[in-house]
Design a protein around this nucleic acid. Sequence first.
DNA 1: CTGTTAGCGCATTCAG
DNA 2: CTGAATGCGCTAACAG
Lengths: 351, 351
Amino acid sequence: MTTASAPKRRRATGRVTLQDVALAAGVSPITASRALRGERSVAADLVERVTTAVAQLGYVPDPAARALASARSNQVVVLIPLLSNTLFVDLLDAAQRTLLAAGYQSLIGVTHYRADEEEALLRTYLMNRPAGLLVTGFDHTEAAHALIHGSGVPCVHVMENRGAAPGAADAEDGGEPYSVGFSQQAAGHAMTAELLRRGYRRIAFAAAQLDPRTLQRAQGYRAALGAAHDPRLEFMDAAPSSFALGAKLLERVMREAPDVDAIFFNNDDLAQGALLQALRLGLRVPERIAVVGFNDLTGGDQMLPPLSTVRTPRGEIGLHAARMLVALMRGEDVPERRVDLGFELVMRSSC
Amino acid sequence: MTTASAPKRRRATGRVTLQDVALAAGVSPITASRALRGERSVAADLVERVTTAVAQLGYVPDPAARALASARSNQVVVLIPLLSNTLFVDLLDAAQRTLLAAGYQSLIGVTHYRADEEEALLRTYLMNRPAGLLVTGFDHTEAAHALIHGSGVPCVHVMENRGAAPGAADAEDGGEPYSVGFSQQAAGHAMTAELLRRGYRRIAFAAAQLDPRTLQRAQGYRAALGAAHDPRLEFMDAAPSSFALGAKLLERVMREAPDVDAIFFNNDDLAQGALLQALRLGLRVPERIAVVGFNDLTGGDQMLPPLSTVRTPRGEIGLHAARMLVALMRGEDVPERRVDLGFELVMRSSC
DNA sequence: CTGTTAGCGCATTCAG
DNA sequence: CTGAATGCGCTAACAG
């Protein structure tokens, strides 16, 4: 065989490489590489020859080789607290779609609302040299924060907007973090104010999970009530949100504070569970007691009575955050670091 | 500076490499590599020296380099139809957890019940040279099937067990595919039989989405009814499952077949929506009409009346499938290719 | 059981 | 605008 002495004969793996493409196109490998990645410094006719060769040979780039050579993968790490809250699933779905369309894959991590799990996930996923990071909220361990920063990977926070750091500007790294969300506190305030406007006076706040965003909503609730705020009307349960817990919380409120005329649940599944429990107990809603929820999850409009709630734009947040991250990953300038997408009161007939 | 002429001075990236570890441990890089990966052909004391060096230097392996050198990544592709059905989220959650514990990362793809999207996702994700594949069901395009096979990547199918190929054994590739699930048809049959046993005679089947597994359940429903089967009592709607659609389907059934005494919904959200609609319409359940669902999703036990349904073991399926896949990826022999995890009738009071 | 040699497939220098 | 040389960090294959 003559191939035995050929200096650079085709490798045995059978894989079509960039080199094969370059050979077929009559250019150097690096030109083929540049053409494929859309670097503009390649003549149009060469680009076309490369494209043709790619199609003919069925060339498929190797992400591992790319990542090794460039020290960056095409993967984006997305960290959310839970998969069992449709809120985050909606967020994730939108973000993943957008990222995929822009050529990025998502590595999804579920933190279970635990800062230590988040840190562990970061440590694991950061090994992949991701191109970007999408994380929920701002409550990270010191170490997690350091990991994110130290990695130099662009990061967008979602679901809340951290108040602009007061006083000493966080100037070490160019300042304010990138975030897309809305003011949880303002949302809590707005719904409470609406209840007050409608004449409710003894308004309870019932919450589960007790994550930072829930507590921010509680702050809004308190601020809206002002002097009328009664701490005995806050019913907090650290257990995860569910229909069953909503039912339980309703009973607890009625037992411990029978003069309550409205309950603001911090998530729709609690509120929906409470509505069902009210039906079971024969409590009339909203006559005897008004019930409102948060997030406008699926099913609220089907309840008896239909649930009043706060619609939160998690899909839009996922989309917008992904777009922002893509811009950052491409090295584009993103002047607007904090995007507030707002919320909307959806008043149906449960209050 | 003296370093200028040193033949192999430390690279400028600042990254701690295997070579550094090897140097510190006084072994060759390949021995360090073997020690890290737990190959048993390394002396215990050397392993310890390597481990120590790793800890001291804070060495972190580079997945990209590993993947490039070994032509296999540590990622597993998981393909599910939807993220908005908690059924698949439960499956995913369990699988992801198990895989992560075994050292594998998950690349999640959402097919939206579309074979062409599945194919596109496979094409994209297969570029990463995944270590394994976890896919929902058996309905793939020819091309997708070829991609899976051609890649040589171990694959486990979940949620159903394909009937053993009758006649000509699918011997080309060693036969039967690996799968973990249960018989959708048997489940459909069992619930229908239970309704018959309880005296219901005009039993409707109401379904959404109309994916293959739904149709298998319909087969079971028909088989259980035998000669009593009336095609006019099948109400199929290709739209996605939801509370609202369940409400709509209930109305349609009552309008088009008022003599129906029970409705078997192919998913719990439909059934729950129907239950709420019945409440709204003043239809007594189960006296006027019995309602049963499928999957035992969250909330069913909170309905009025509590929903009878079929509990499906998606969490266990995710767990078991992940374990099976891990075994395959490790090159272990897995003799039991088809695992049937069964199902359970959960009879509450809606029938 | 350990080490040597030689790439894996690509993109980043730097020249032209 | 294009190309040549080089190495990213690791492991497969073979030797000892």
